[in-house]
Amino acid sequence: MDEPIQNKKVDTPQDNSDVITMRHIAKSFGDNAILKDINMDLHKGENLVILGKSGTGKSVTIKLIVNLLEYDKGELKVFGDEVKDLSEQELKKLRTRVGFLFQSAALYDSMTVRENLEFPLKRILKIKDEKELEDRIKEVLDSVGLPDAIDKMPSELSGGMRKRIGLARTIILKPEIMLYDEPTTGLDPITSKEISELIMSMQEKFKISSIIITHDIACAKITANRMMVMDKGEFVAEGTFEELENSSDDFIKSFFKL
């Protein structure tokens, strides 16, 4: 039986302030070992930025969190529950509590912006009332700064606008965790800055905990409370923006060169 999932905030126990914990996670595709030993915590309310070169397995890491891919080994707990052991219903619930912004924004390109935003509302929150749908959509479009885009098709939107609508479609379910996959890649510096600021406002307004994958150092500087650097399927460094910026390690320094 599909019950409507209420999007009320669930209080996390005080002694467990980590919303995600990963321990010794390994993942291969065939003979190709992508993740070797991933250990990471996401603290409640923080913005964690993950830096890393292309192809090191950053996207794979966050796809494990929502079970788009399955890990081979290790422990991965989200809100205290092992992701592998969730039933279909529990997984569905988890997925409404964790938002995912894809690199390509992944808008449904046969639907208008309105239909894109209605899609999760109708199916997950089971909202049928036209007025409530309309109010929710307006509210979320306002919070991403695109109130006029409501009747446009995705193909009419610029890259930055698509990212915003993608974000709107995700936060419309009021997630507690956001996973951003390269939110500013492919955007001009000004739009990048706007998106970075939007990520900050999500944190402030909705108290969302976030993982932000990026190699845009300007974005990291604006958004990061804490940063981790990934290389070849492992985390190789961790610290605040200033700490990593002043690192003596050549590999880490290379991310900060303009």
Partner: peptide, 20 residues
């Protein structure tokens, strides 16, 4: 839709892409 991650997006929003 698969290439542009739309099916993944449907799935992680908690909707059911096979059904839809």
């Amino acid at each position: 839709m698969q290439v542009s991650e739309q099916i993944d997006a449907m799935e992680v929003s908690g909707a059911n892409p096979v059904q839809y």
